[in-house]
Nucleic acid binder design. Structure first.
Length: 489
RNA sequence: CGGGGCGUGGCGCAGUCUGGUAGCGCAUCUGCUUUGGGAGCAGAGGGUCGUGGGUUCAAAUCCCGCCGCCCCGACCA
């Protein structure tokens, strides 16, 4: 058998690599292979399985130059920080750093939905056309819906939303008003075949969305459910460090009456918004919420102030005068609406009421763009050097920078700080690469971890480290113990 | 979907008008020197120039078709 040139390639590559390894040659940050950790006999299943990471082993392909296709700042920074990789127009893979942020955001959304009494389910991405024919939307939805056929030539679709699906589930099991209200949500990938996807994950075709659905006996009940989500949304966005303003909205193609969209304020936002400056003083996290109590006063407080997106704003009719009117740019990150029996009626979602009569349930649906939020947060929180993550969604809380790997004292001090942070369960990314100081500073600023602990030979000689706050830029030298306290939060 | 632009090594670009050995910077690999804000020198590897056809002695370059991506607008979480 002839030995082809191609056949020789892998062998040569292997030899080359082995030679490199034997000499202790460093590999780029994201190609290194870590020794696999020993698996304990009875492994636990923590939510986060990588609380700490060495950058020399981490897959973090940062870019110095900006890819040409990215126009807006969040898209540029997500590509440069190695968070995502475009697969095709409006469709992205999530790399480790981006995926961590996505999971963080998802988890905050989940916690606040759960707190409001909403229960998590998971519905499929692929749905049967039949379901959508029943609601009449199979024909109404248009080309934005990705239609596919299975091997039996049955019409299927990649779900752009899940009203029909959830209504079918509800209908199958719930027969009595005694089981109402029911609040259900899921966090699932959706697909809308946008004519023109753009702005990176802010307007992709495939996107991760939390969509919740409420089922109530009547309008009054639906109103109570609506308020729960209204409040949960205020808390959700506030926890991500965002200023979200609820604005009266059209209910769009899904249809309905009561509707608000939640716009976060960001200088680079997609549309102009106008609102009362008093909003800025509201803090949704100030007080505990009793979701079983009366939420009307709280919702009224938020809806009592003027807020309008560009197309709804009429300067002549605006009640807010002069300085008190805030003109800003916004990004829509959530949308809630009540739509009555729009789906429950055609799909036959009825329950028996107290009077023994069958009643069509009142529904509402409540969306949050989870993947979009990743970009939106960056739009709201960045500077020239890169991303500035709010602590609640940061992929790691602390970046530990070793300014001179190979220097015994510096290495030892870094190892000490790294171990202590892990002990304190502080998520840390340790830059132990053999790179120049400047490159490390630049990368760390770019990926935007809230805290940097900088260790160099100068400080190591006197057992001091430098702590830098990414947001304020404030930096100070201090002992390891002081640094741990400062950074642990 | 209307209008415009662009596809050349992993990234950013030149070369196309006027056809004639495929280049530059960054990144990567090797060696030496460097080391507190994206290092220097020397060497090396890597590209069927989006794709199919056509014209020609010869095509990244000219012609036709197709595909992909980006921007503006209308539309949207």
């Amino acid at each position: 058998m002839a030995t082809s040139a191609r056949r020789d390639e892998p062998l040569r590559d292997t030899l080359r690599q082995n030679r490199g390894a034997a000499r202790g040659i460093r590999r780029p940050a994201w190609t290194g292979q870590a020794a696999l950790p020993r698996v304990p006999a009875s492994p636990s299943t923590p939510l986060r399985n990588t609380p700490a990471m060495r950058l020399s082993q981490y897959f973090l392909p940062t870019l110095k130059e900006t890819p040409a296709e990215a126009q807006i700042v969040s898209h540029r920074l997500m590509l440069r920080a190695g968070m995502i990789r475009q697969s095709s127009a409006g469709i992205y893979s999530w790399l480790p750093l981006g995926f961590r942020v996505l999971k963080r955001i998802e988890q905050i959304v989940r916690e606040e939905e759960d707190a409001a009494g909403c229960q998590e389910v998971l519905m499929p991405t692929i749905q049967p056309a039949e379901l959508w024919r029943a609601s009449g939307r199979y024909d109404d939805y248009g080309a934005e819906m990705l239609r596919i056929k299975d091997r039996h030539d049955r019409d299927m679709l990649y779900g752009p939303t899940n009203e029909e699906q959830i209504t079918e589930i509800f209908k199958a099991y719930i027969r009595s008003y005694k089981h109402l209200p029911k609040l259900l949500y899921h966090i699932q990938w959706k697909f809308r075949d946008e004519v023109r996807p753009r702005f990176g994950v802010m307007r992709g075709r495939e996107f991760l969305m939390k969509d919740a659905y409420s089922f109530d006996l009547d309008y009054a009940g639906a109103e109570r459910s609506y308020r729960k989500f209204f409040v949960a949304y205020l808390r959700t966005f506030a926890r991500m460090g965002l200023k979200a303003i609820p604005m009266q909205a059209d209910s769009g193609p899904i249809g309905g009456d009561m509707s608000h969209e939640f716009q976060i304020l960001a200088e680079t936002g997609e549309s102009k918004v106008f609102c009362d400056k008093a909003f800025l003083n509201f803090d949704p996290l100030q007080s505990d919420i009793d979701y079983d109590g009366n939420l009307k006063p709280l919702v009224d407080r938020w809806t009592g102030l003027y807020a309008a997106a560009d197309e709804k704003h009429d300067p002549a009719k605006c009640p807010v005068k002069g300085d008190q009117l805030l003109e800003a740019r916004g990004i829509e990150v959530g949308h809630i609406f009540y739509f009555g029996t729009k789906y429950s009626a055609p799909l036959g979602a009825n329950v028996d009421g107290p009077d023994g009569k069958s009643t069509t349930v009142h529904m509402g649906s409540y969306g949050i763009g989870v993947s979009r939020l990743t970009g939106a947060i960056i739009e709201a929180s960045h500077d020239d050097a890169g991303i500035i993550w709010p602590e609640s969604v940061a992929p790691f809380r602390v970046g530990l920078i070793n300014l001179k790997t190979g220097d015994a004292k510096t290495d030892a001090l870094c190892a000490d700080v790294y171990a202590k942070l892990r002990q304190k369960k502080v998520e840390v990314l340790y830059d132990d690469r053999d790179e120049r100081a400047g490159a490390k500073f630049a990368d760390m600023d770019l990926i935007g971890l809230p805290w940097q602990v900088i260790v160099g030979p100068r400080g190591a000689a006197v057992e001091k480290v430098e702590v830098k706050n990414r947001r304020t830029g404030e930096r100070a030298e201090m002992s390891v113990d002081q640094a741990l306290t400062k950074v642990a939060g």
